[in-house]
Design a protein around this nucleic acid. Structure first.
Lengths: 350, 350
DNA sequence: TAAGCTCTCTACAACGTTGCACACGGCGGT
DNA sequence: ACCGCCGTGTGCAACGTTGTAGAGAGCTTA
């Protein structure tokens, strides 16, 4: 039961060999206690200037750098946050990640990225993952989780949801105004005289996801204008990649239904739609106007330049990091719901 | 806003209140020692089945999950690696990051992303950063550091350089075959009968960076074909964004120099070039053929589809992670230099 | 002169985990 | 009977850091 601690002392190591310098090494060199070195490192004020100098010199000599892991263990704070997105290669998320990393950096944080690959199981696993222990909080942009999964997001790790407000009001959300923006996009097309507006990117039956909300905005605009919604104009596209935009648009064309505009639910789909239209000999915007959504870089120099919605990605990133840090600082506080503004970016395609 | 927490002692919490369960809690509940729980968690074989069951039940009851930070402190391994890229919004790097994250995940690792924003100081700082302590190794894609900075990359953290082999042979590199691929791209254009081939993306004076190497491949192809290199066909573009591709190409057009092909040093530049050419009334590929480099998603559905070089991004990501893990396992081993293969992807633009 | 204060510095204990050494009981072989 | 071994389980120490409590020196104040 008890161990006699006879045997060799642990001092065998000839001091500094491998590994980085620690507080202990600095303390030994400077002839002070470990804690004093720690105090110097952390700018504790009550250290005699001469002592401070000696310590600082030792720090330089040994090129000491604090071990963040040990600090984390002690303090409970890692200085890192996780960003979970469906797929980084989608321009919207790449640009979002870019902005989040910048925003986090300004606040001294670093970002770990997880991809959920539009796989439900991965979204579920992520929330339960021990990985979250490596991180102070999570920014999560769910793609397939829905309200029926509300229980899953009740986790201990501070969490901010991005995208749309679909869960408990008790969870922080930072969202774009999907319905209003989609409505504005549709109204812009109507205002330009288009009356047969197809949509590309529909998820049949979805109500509360991105596709559902944007479709709702579209419906609202039409209804408000007294135009009947024609479901034959719905282009279904599960994924929002170029290929799907192209295929959904071809399907619409082949179906023979008449339309003079396409409202694509993101820019990538819109570019795919343009491709399909031009391949079929229809001019954009003369024959068919095309409207995107996202204002990603790829639409800026396309031909024709893509008219689209700027959903305020940068402010989303900023707010998301702020809200998350706030939540980390103050776990008990009331949930915040931030909705950032949007704008219609007019270029040539519509 | 703040509450004075006078009064109650911190022990008021009736055990499990805040914080997650630890080995200690599980041990207490299962009536065994901490170490035994640890043994169960780590699949140590010599645990009696009945004991194991009891412990596992306690683990489930308390929803115990190991604290990765503590593990890290103990073991020295974090299970994370850093990927440093110039800018995540550039499609090449977004897709690279995507692939790196996938490759890392297959090996049980998670990825932290740093952006250097093509800022020299940030590249320098990154290498010296304490942040690296949070990570087992670094995949670094330098943009502006050059051979003159060789001293800077002598760091303790395991490091693999991506892009081109420009540093000490004593450092691991995973690179694409820039010279050979650019030569193949140029030869393809020559083979198609083009003789006045402009290049877009030149960095004047650069020898050993991406731009320099691709320009070398271009030169080699021309020289081998007995065609003189005409510097008036060099389109300078510092950044490789759509805008710069467009502007550089406009400059070429405005200069009045004659050309029947453009070899852009990446796909984004190529798309910018196509935009400029079409705006100027030149047909692609009839008047001017356009060749890109990267085979990023954006070129797949552009109009016309972009002919380009596939540099083997996926294999780069795979190899990079493998080489890095290898380096982490075995610090003393000889440096490895992996060059992955490439291919010419023919679509419509050339 | 004693009490009290400030300044400077220190020892100790924890954060949660795992490697190490060992204790204990039973078993098989000599 | 003895030895050694195997299977099972334990306690201790350590990873590098920081919060807390307090020690000792020098100063002021009554």
């Amino acid at each position: 039961m008890t161990t006699t601690s006879a045997g060799p002392l642990p001092q065998a190591e000839g001091r500094r060999g491998a590994g980085a310098a620690t507080l202990r090494d600095v303390a030994r060199l400077a002839g002070v206690s470990i804690k004093t070195v720690s105090n110097v490192v952390n700018d504790y004020p009550h250290v005699r200037p001469t002592t401070r100098q000696r310590v600082e010199e030792a720090i330089r000599t040994l090129d000491y750098q604090p071990n963040l892991t040990a600090r984390t263990l002690r303090s409970g704070r890692t200085g890192a946050l996780a960003l979970a997105v469906p797929e980084l290669r989608l321009p919207y998320f790449a640009e979002l990640a870019d902005e989040v990393i910048r925003a986090a950096e300004r606040r001294g944080m670093v970002v770990l990225i997880e991809q959920t690959n539009r796989d439900r199981q991965r979204e579920v696993d992520l929330l339960a993952s021990a990985r979250l222990r490596m991180v102070d909080g999570l920014l999560f942009s769910p793609l397939v989780l829905g309200i029926e999964d509300a229980a899953l997001i009740e986790i201990d790790t501070p969490l901010v949801l991005l995208g749309e407000r679909m869960f408990h009001p008790s969870v922080d959300h930072v969202t774009m105004r999907n319905v209003e923006a989609a409505r504005a996009a549709t109204e812009y097309l109507l205002h330009r005289g288009r009356r047969r507006i197809a949509v590309v990117g529909v998820h049949p039956g979805e109500v509360i996801g991105t596709a559902g909300l944007r479709l709702r905005g579209y419906r609202e605009a039409l209804e408000h204008a007294g135009i009947e919604v024609d479901e034959r104009l719905f282009g279904v596209a599960d994924l929002w990649h170029l290929r799907e935009g192209d295929e959904a648009t071809r399907t619409l064309i082949d179906s023979g239904v008449d339309f003079d505009a396409v409202f694509a639910f993101n820019d990538t789909l819109a570019l795919g739609a343009i491709h399909a239209l031009r391949s079929a000999g229809r001019e954009v915007p003369d024959d068919v106007a095309v409207m995107g959504f996202d204002n990603s870089d790829e639409g800026m120099y396309s031909i024709p330049g893509l008219t689209t919605i700027d959903p305020g990605r940068r402010r989303i990133a900023e707010s998301a990091v702020d809200v998350l840090l706030n939540r980390i600082e103050n776990r008990g506080s009331a949930a915040r719901h931030v909705e950032v503004g949007f704008s219609v970016v007019v270029r040539e395609s519509a």
